[in-house]
Design a protein around this nucleic acid. Structure first.
Lengths: 208, 208
DNA sequence: GTCTATACAATGATAGAC
DNA sequence: GTCTATCATTGTATAGAC
């Protein structure tokens, strides 16, 4: 029989995206059906097409929204770095802590951002790649400046940028909020490893 | 004993696994159909079931074979570490270089080993996790020994193990054999970052 | 051992009733 | 705006011919 008649487009739209995000993160884009998403929302499959032209667009909207949030959140972080002196060391520490904190607060969006890129159309993929590159460039600039000042010993800033981000992303694969380590502790350990891995050697014995 | 004209089980079996590996890595387990795998091999879909009971087993066989190769290859590497003195510093360097080299030689298998774990049945997943843990323990033992000797400054060996492996795995996302950096160079840069990120501070100025 | 043929559920997406 | 009903297609897997 006829179920609810109410107009819910303003609330159902976000719920559709939330359900898709949750299910894509849990099972993968290709493994999740529109019917599953609809069931999670509590509507029929056909109703989803009021909120997205197709499944592919639903995915790319989630990814673009996420990367947009990453970029603007990092922009918002920059004044805080200046307040700490603004040098490359402060910047690198801030980047590591920001990355850990922000990503752990949005594990599902981060997860699909790294897993489901290949399910995007070439156009959508290119747009996401450009945003990701912009974020990476923020870190690389810090490395470049630190290297120029002799603070960092980095032979290849591009490679090092990617290596550091990979290390930081790894936290997603194991971190559990109820685990033995607090978020602050995890942040500090990672920030310390990042810092040490690029720091120029103080004059002292090298290992053989 | 009637001779058959197309007896190829000894060659078709490996080709089925090779095709599945290639397609799973390229598009994801859930996105690849048995029909696609069959087309890649050049047989009909039904013929695949001569070589695997089902799609899920095809995946878990690929992953278990790969992890078995990782473990035995690392075992084979241990004598080489002894030859270099056998200390934690030599061990850590050897691990980083081994991991980079071995993984870059099998990018597809490594890729699905990290991406498709969630598509395994709980039993198959548990088996794979145990093998992965065994590999990680090899690295953690090096860190534990280095920490005990005062060579490494590592506050949490488990977390550091995961962070280092994440960093090393990252090479897969960007390395191209025809790129601007040689494999040796990449190996060296990563091994250097790994080494520095855990090395105990020589006495000298700390950053503020 | 490999094929064709097929079973039969599930998929993404659309049309039209209310 | 949501529903039911439906479309063409594709999914995994099996049966039986040769």
């Amino acid at each position: 029989m006829a179920r609810k008649q109410g107009s819910h487009s303003d609330i159902t739209g976000p719920r559709v995206r939330a359900a898709a995000l949750k299910l894509f993160a849990a099972h993968g884009f290709a493994a999740v059906s529109m019917r599953q998403i609809a069931a999670e929302v509590g509507v029929q499959a056909g109703a989803l097409y009021l909120y997205t032209p197709d499944k592919q667009t639903l995915l790319s909207d989630l990814l673009e929204t996420h990367m947009g949030e990453v970029l603007s959140a990092w922009q918002a972080e920059l004044p805080r770095i200046e307040a700490r002196g603004g040098g490359p060391e402060a910047g690198l520490d801030a980047f590591a802590r920001f990355h850990i904190r922000f990503h752990l607060a949005r594990p599902q969006a981060v997860f699909i951002s790294y897993m489901e890129l290949r399910n995007l159309t070439p156009e959508n993929f290119a747009k996401l790649e450009a945003m990701r590159k912009q974020y990476e460039d923020g870190l690389e600039q810090i490395l470049i400046e630190g290297k120029a000042r002799g603070l960092f010993d980095v032979s290849d800033t591009k490679l090092t940028t990617l290596a550091l981000i990979s290390m930081l992303n790894g936290v997603l694969t194991w971190y559990k909020p109820e685990g033995r380590l607090s978020l602050d502790r995890v942040e500090s350990i990672y920030a310390d490893m990042v810092s040490k891995s690029v720091r120029a050697q103080e004059r002292s014995a090298q290992i053989a």
